[in-house]
Each structure stands twice: as C-alpha cells, then as structure tokens.
C-alpha cells in the first residue's frame, strides 16, 4: 500500500497527490513514469512523475480526472492509499547541456514537463518554457515552471491569459523572431504535440515528445502501447516514453488512444450511478 501524504487541487479536475513510495523516489529520474492500480478491481494505468523527494521518500503525480481510474484516484484523501505503484518505468530523459532549449507543454502535460525543465536548467541549459491550457483557471504549475525557466510564455485557447491560441503558435513566433532552439521538448495532449512537431519540422529543429498511450503492465509485456516511429513499431513503455517527434505517427497514436472510448463511457456512467447511490 502506498499512502497519500498530500493532496492539492491545482485546478478544476486537476489534482496533485504526494505518495509515500521511498523505493521509487530513490531511483526516479526526469521523464519516467509509474503504473498505478488503485484498488483490487482497478485497472493498471501510467502517470508520468511530476516530482519526487528521495530524502522524504515521496513521489508526486498530477492528473486530470478524465476516466474511471483518475476519477477514483481523485477521491483519495490524505491517509488513504493506492494499492499498487510500480516504477520508475521507462527511459529517463536524455538530460545534458544542449544550449537553448524550449519546453512546450499543455494541460496536465505541464506537470510531466516540470521535472524535465528543472533537470535541463540544472544541466546548464537556457530554458524557454511555453505553457498552455484551455483557459486561465486550468493553467497549472506556472510558478514552479517559472523558477526553472529563463523565459516563460503562456497561452490559453480563449485568451483569458497570455497569448490567445496554442502553445505551438507561441513557439512559431519565437522561431520567427530568431530563437534557434537546440532541442525542443513537447509534452501534452497528442494534438498539441503534433502541432508543435509541425512547427519545428520545417526548421529541422530536434523535437522530443513524451507519449502516454494505453498501457497495461508498463514493462514491455502487453504491447498495447505500441507506436509507429519512423518505419518501426516501438513500445512506449520500454523503448520510450520519449521519441523523436518528427518520426511519430500521431494519427495512429490518437486512434489507439480512443480504442476504448465506449467502454470508458460505460464505466464512467456506472461509477456515477454508484456515487449517486452512495449519496442517497
């Protein structure tokens, strides 16, 4: 059992949990993820690590309540526990001194990008971060990102804060202004990553994306997370989760992510019914 030590609601439906997991905290590196199973009937699902404290023995996860598992996870309070957490999984980000780096992130992906921005900054890079969300109240970790960025830009779909539009637009503007990024990290929803990759591709600007496809075991066994990168099929869990964004087949990734939408809806309505009963 992995105890919840802290819970923060960062934005509507976006929650942060700090969990007691000393063995994972001791080994975690930027870019890695964990697989969780909340209870005996729960599914196994991946979440990228948002932070960790080796000394305290804690890991931090941030998630959007979007399906049965994340909604259930969001109901846990301090003192409750997650039944299973395994990790750290996946290859760590390749952190080194690149020079000028852009960290482009959207939605809850900002939480996954945060440790990478931090590690890149600590490795001596000049970090330009672009964070986005649908609207101002859904922006997360702005202060945290700022503390490890030389420049920070914000965009919202509705223009309620920062640039009105997408993070990829901001990146494009910066490139037009003459920013020559030695590497771009794009982390967030697949559509956002695809848009970012489309901006950097004409400039042959190396772009790393962190993929979060459906996984069951997260250790190479199931192959549910297979993605086409270049001509090859790769497993996001053990070959990734980070890949060269210019080579990723995003259309396929998006279709595969939607594979269980009807089942997810069915499970959600069942969960809502159960909750409704509990309230009565």
């Amino acid at each position: 059992m992995y105890k919840v030590l802290k819970k923060v609601e960062l934005a509507p439906k976006i929650k942060l949990l700090e969990i007691d997991a000393p063995e994972i905290a001791a080994k975690a590196k930027a870019g890695q993820f964990v697989i969780l199973r909340i209870d005996e009937k729960g599914e196994r699902f991946p979440l990228t690590l948002a932070d960790w404290e080796p000394k305290e023995g804690t890991i931090t996860i941030v998630f959007l309540e979007v399906g049965v598992s994340t909604v259930k996870l969001g109901t846990l309070e301090v003192g409750d526990a997650v039944l299973d957490v395994v990790g750290p999984l996946g290859n760590p980000s390749d952190i080194k001194h690149y020079g000028l780096v852009a960290v482009v992130c959207g939605g809850v992906g900002t939480a996954a990008a945060y440790p990478i921005a931090k590690a890149l900054k600590e490795a001596g890079n000049q970090v330009v971060s672009i964070i986005g969300a649908r609207t101002e109240e859904l922006l997360i970790l702005e202060e945290e990102m700022k503390s490890f960025s030389d420049e920070l830009y914000i965009s919202t779909d509705d223009g309620s804060k920062g640039h009105k539009g997408f993070v990829s637009d901001v990146l494009e503007t910066l490139i037009e202004k003459g920013y020559r990024f030695d590497i771009v990290y794009a982390i967030g929803p697949p559509l956002m990553m695809r848009a970012t990759v489309n901006v950097t591709k004409p400039h042959s600007m190396k772009t790393i994306v962190s993929l979060n496809p459906i996984m069951v075991d997260g250790m190479g066994m199931c192959g549910a997370c297979r993605v086409t990168v270049g001509e090859e099929t790769r497993f996001a869990c053990i070959d990734g989760p980070e890949f060269d964004g210019h080579l990723v087949d995003f259309d396929e990734l998006i279709k595969r992510l939607r594979a269980y939408l009807p089942e997810e809806k069915q499970a959600m309505s069942r969960l809502e019914e159960r909750c409704a009963c509990a309230w009565k």
Partner: peptide
C-alpha cells in the same frame, strides 16, 4: 499477452464490475 493479461490478471471478463475493459 495483452489479451490474456486483460482477461486473466485484470479480470476484464467481469468488466465493468472490474475496471479493465
């Protein structure tokens, strides 16, 4: 592997009673 893990380990034959579809 994926098929059998879902069915055997995650008991998806009892979906939605179990969460794994």
């Amino acid at each position: 592997n994926e098929f059998l893990i879902r069915v055997n380990l995650m008991k998806s034959y009892e979906f939605p009673h179990y969460d794994t579809p």
